[in-house]
């Protein structure tokens, strides 16, 4: 397989960029596309989603017709899903979680399209998504709690009343220690918050990567058998249902756990899942 050598011996189904790269390695545009391969494939999915939204969802009518029916079913299903996790206030987060789900789902499924590559099989894509989730969650928390309460919470909710009971000469020392611990806790908490979506991104990337490799191996096996039999055998079709299921499940898991992170960030009683996790 042509792409195999370029990726350290790991089989990969050739996509249109690898084909172009093998054909015109020296061309700057091809080199650029090859360098930003995952970003390009993610952008293709994003543009397709944006076009569908622009074409069919921009001006919905009260009595739906055609594609609007399908989009409404999808949107309502995602909205119910998000609100079942976050609670009644989850509507505000439906666009973020819904876009996340659709984006990941379509990127995962793009592995079934000839010439395409699932951008989610790269850690760069999934960590980028994790970064977006982290930023969104922290932004939601700051907007809900206020910046002071946000920092106070991340710094371990410290109290300074116990300093009054200490001898006067010890108070500055204790204060410095306390501030140091607060800063340490703040950094640790922040890293902990970031690690949550990062763990999701690792799971997603490795699952999709494994799917991609499996498809490539079976495709290669079919082609090898075809060389012997003078007729290619489509072994990869046997795993297509599995790819469909895993792609959906992975997108769902990422969206579900992101919703749970958002619910955990909301003040007590606002998120449905909040109480269960504290």
């Amino acid at each position: 397989m042509s792409a195999e050598a370029a990726h350290g011996g790991i089989p990969e189904i050739p996509n249109f960029i690898t084909v172009l790269y093998n054909w015109q390695q020296e061309h700057p545009l091809v080199q650029f596309l090859h360098r930003w391969e995952n970003v390009v494939f993610a952008a293709i999915v994003a543009v397709a989603l944006a076009l569908v939204a622009w074409r069919y969802a921009r001006h919905p009518v009260m009595i739906p017709r055609g594609a609007q029916n399908l989009l409404e079913v999808l949107v309502e299903g995602i909205d119910n899903f998000v609100r079942s996790i976050i609670g009644p206030t989850g509507r505000a987060h439906t666009p973020f979680i819904g876009t996340l789900f659709l984006y990941i789902w379509l990127m995962n499924l793009s592995s079934l399209l000839p010439g395409m590559k699932p951008a989610t099989s790269s850690l760069n894509t999934t960590i980028g998504l994790a970064l977006a989730v982290f930023c969104y969650v922290q932004y939601t928390r700051v907007r809900t709690l206020g910046i002071g309460a946000y920092i106070h919470h991340l710094a371990g909710s410290p109290h300074f009343d116990d300093l009054k009971s200490a001898p006067v000469w010890m108070r500055p020392v204790l204060l410095v220690i306390k501030l140091f611990v607060m800063a340490l806790l703040f950094v640790l908490e922040l890293v902990g918050e970031f690690v949550k979506p990062i763990s999701l991104s690792l799971r997603l990337a490795f699952n999709i990567f494994a799917e991609d490799v499996l498809l490539a191996v079976l495709l290669g096996l079919g082609l090898s058998a075809g060389m012997l039999l003078h007729f290619p055998l489509p072994f990869q079709f046997f795993v297509v249902p599995l790819v469909l299921i895993f792609s959906t499940v992975q997108a769902l898991v990422f969206s579900l756990l992101s919703s749970v992170y958002i619910a955990l960030m909301l003040p007590h009683g606002e998120g449905a899942a909040h109480g269960e996790h504290h």
Binding site: A50, V61, L71, D79, T94, P95, T99
Partner: peptide, 16 residues
């Protein structure tokens, strides 16, 4: 993408 879809898909569809 979130911004675009919020404006052209989620907003109108959830509104309707």
């Amino acid at each position: 993408l979130v911004v675009v879809l919020r404006k052209f898909a989620w907003g109108p569809l959830l509104g309707i």
